[in-house]
Write a protein that binds this DNA or RNA. Sequence first.
DNA 1: TATCAGGGCCTAG
DNA 2: CTAGGCCCTGAT
Length: 276
Amino acid sequence: MITINNPDFNIRKIAESGQCFRLNANQAGGYTLVALGRVLRLSETNEGCVLDCTQAEFDALWRDYFDLSTDYAAIRAQVDPVDAFLRRACDYGTGIRMLRQDPWEMLVSFIISQRKNIPAIKYCIEAICSRYGEPIESQGERFYAFPSAERLAALDEAHFLACSLGYRAKYVLSAARMIATGTLDLSAIAALNDEALYAALQSVSGVGEKVANCVMLFGYHRLDRFPRDVWINRIEAREYGGAFPTERYPDTAGALQQYIFYYARSAAYQGSRSSD
DNA sequence: TATCAGGGCCTAG
DNA sequence: CTAGGCCCTGAT
């Protein structure tokens, strides 16, 4: 067992921040994460967040996955003191971190995300994993890893249609085949600068600006990327008169975007806007 | 039951 | 550059 006692680590907020789709509340009152081909259970206690893994597994995998070497208090501290909205968002979202997730899983997940809400995205991803992912037994329960590109490349469009992907089915299939054949190497492009990586990702059919930015932010930990979805667009219109000042936060705008996204969808913010 | 919107992208014009 | 189509689900 590992305990993380850090105000900048809150598993509930991370789970609800929309960056990951396979971290869910469990029956025991905690959270269960399927990632890196493993299952990890986490629960909040008075002593902090407890992870049910060994020290060796924590050191090898989860310390990096949860980005525990980044100082999120420092990121929040650089927020413009005049920007009351952003300060509120950061206070409200304290505990959120930017997970270092698998690029392939992020690519597929965010291709699926277009014109879907979060429950629908999770449904599709679980359908794919449960049918084509490797089973993982954990404490008497069976989970499924996210399937490899090679595995998905061997399927055809009908299999993805059956997972409720709709018009995105052909995008996911072609992405899988690009990766499986080596047309696109997700490991190799990690070495590219932002603009080249952005372009490389958009060479995939079904990947536009929004999805490419999400893959960069969540899969390649490019914390400067600032994906604009309908929620962020609303906030930019309501709170910033057009555009968020990304230029003021050249290294961390994407992390701030996650605080904004979490706050914008919260009852706390929605309630404060109810007079509109 | 009916309607709308959802962490968009592609194609045609 | 903009308008329309797309496939399905969750929320009301």
